[in-house]
């Protein structure tokens, strides 16, 4: 399983490299001796199937592994593209480490009742856990916890604060 993934990634990597090389050849660029800037030619620098520019478009600057919080819409546990990329990067990292323990801590904003939000927070952390195990993190190392609305990062009563509070924290 693990080996298959590694192989697959290598193949993808190789293909993207050759694709880039092909493009380069078409361009009228006679100077060959200067070393190309590697990051520009690398379409998947962090193993999540996206280039740095594509990541930046999602609000991810640099390595998605440096991000440990993913966010949600109101009363929703749906994973958006940004969350998917971050969670995938962590799943890959877990697989690489082989059996590291991670706690997925789900939270909700203050709207809605506390017991409902406790359940909603769990839904969110469960959704992240499901995604991470589906891309190969291994379910046994993921602990799902919910604090509902009890531990907000921002106590203000506005959408900006609520956005920050509707989250799952990926804690190593």
């Amino acid at each position: 399983m693990k080996r298959n993934y590694g192989l697959l990634l290598t193949v993808i990597f190789a293909l993207t490299l050759t694709a880039c090389a092909g493009k380069k050849k078409e361009a009228p660029e006679p100077v060959q001796e200067t070393a190309p800037v590697v990051t520009q030619t690398n379409n998947d620098p962090y193993g999540v199937g996206m280039s740095a520019d594509q990541l930046r478009a999602l609000g991810i600057a640099g390595n998605p592994l440096d991000y440990t919080t993913v966010y949600f819409e109101y009363n929703s546990s749906a994973i958006d593209r940004r969350s998917e990329v971050i969670a995938t990067a962590h799943a890959n990292e877990l697989r690489r480490r082989g059996g590291a323990k991670v706690k997925l801590e789900g939270h909700a904003d203050e709207r809605g009742t506390r017991d409902y939000n406790l359940a909603l927070g769990e839904r969110r952390s469960q959704a992240v856990a499901n995604l991470m195990s589906s891309v190969g993190a291994g379910n046994s190392s993921l602990q799902v916890v919910s604090f509902g609305e009890e531990r907000p990062v921002d106590r203000a009563h506005n959408e900006a604060a609520w956005q920050k509070n509707r989250r799952v924290e990926i804690l190593y």
């Binding site: 017991d115 406790l118 769990e122 602990q143 799902v144 916890v145 919910s146 604090f147 509902g148």
Partner: peptide, 9 residues
């Protein structure tokens, strides 16, 4: 009432 332990609520 509801309290929290290491494993959650």
């Amino acid at each position: 009432f509801v309290a929290f332990s290491d494993g959650g609520s």
